[in-house]
């Protein structure tokens, strides 16, 4: 284990593991987001109760309180090491670029632009945190009032998080920004997912196409899911 993180493959391992951890988070996030649409889709009378219950659960569950700092750490590691790796790679590439450009075919667009996509996602993340997280956690005040909703068989009281999301997604530029963020995320994942398995060492000529296919499916589910939810909120709610 000694000096693992000073080796190139060790640093890549950190990127890979933190990336996979963040993908897990994205699935939890998408599941909760789907509540924004689900109660209308399922035909419940009061729209927003399901989402409010979900937000209440995430805000009060002790397990989430433990995972939240871990998640922040995951983001930090992924971002810091991406910068370290990129700086090292630029140095390794040397100052002189090719005058005749790069005409290598069949190279994924995403794989060549992971940093740029990451920066787009990071910028989106900053706006996103300001929009919702800071407000739901009470760092920024907002007036939505308390509502009652069913919570594991009984009724619970909590802030009307649904109203906040609903109001935010009434603004078209914000919806468009969320779609841009989601599409960048989709491209980022279409390379990142299979690449992380490659870095861990779980790959061969048989699994390469399978993992790449799975990457694309994952990218469509997550990137598409987040975009569709934001757009549906704007159009139908």
């Amino acid at each position: 284990m000694s000096n693992l993180l000073t080796a190139s493959i060790g640093r890549k391992l950190l990127m890979s593991v933190s990336g996979l951890f963040l993908i897990l988070f994205l699935f939890v996030h998408l599941t909760l987001n789907s509540f924004l649409l689900l109660d209308k889709v399922l035909g419940f009378k009061e729209v927003g109760q399901m989402f409010n219950a979900g937000v209440h659960f995430m805000g009060t569950n002790p397990l989430i309180k433990v995972i939240e700092p871990m998640l922040a750490l995951g983001f930090l590691i992924h971002i810091i090491y991406s910068v370290i790796l990129t700086v090292q790679n630029m140095k390794a590439r040397g100052p002189q670029s090719y005058a005749s450009g790069n005409k290598t075919s069949d190279v994924e667009f995403a794989s060549q632009n992971m940093l740029v996509l990451g920066i787009v996602i990071f910028s989106f993340l900053a706006v996103h945190i300001m929009n919702f997280y800071m407000r739901m956690k009470g760092f920024i005040t907002w007036e939505a009032g308390e509502v009652e909703f069913p919570f594991f068989g009984s009724m619970a009281k909590g802030e009307n998080a649904y109203a906040l999301v609903h109001e935010t997604f009434k603004v078209l530029p914000i919806v468009l920004l969320y779609i841009v963020g989601s599409v960048a995320l989709a491209f980022h994942l279409s390379h990142g997912f299979w690449s992380s398995f490659q870095t861990i060492g779980w790959n061969n000529s048989k699994w390469m196409p399978r993992l790449k296919c799975l990457s694309n499916i994952l990218a469509i589910i997550l990137g598409g899911g987040f975009s569709v939810i934001a757009l549906a909120q704007y159009l139908f709610f």
Binding site: R11, K12, K91, D106, V107, S111, T199
Partner: peptide, 13 residues
């Protein structure tokens, strides 16, 4: 001083 692989696959091509 070689760089860190990001699995772009340009090498393989």
């Amino acid at each position: 001083g070689f760089g860190n692989c990001t699995n772009t696959g340009a090498c393989e091509v």
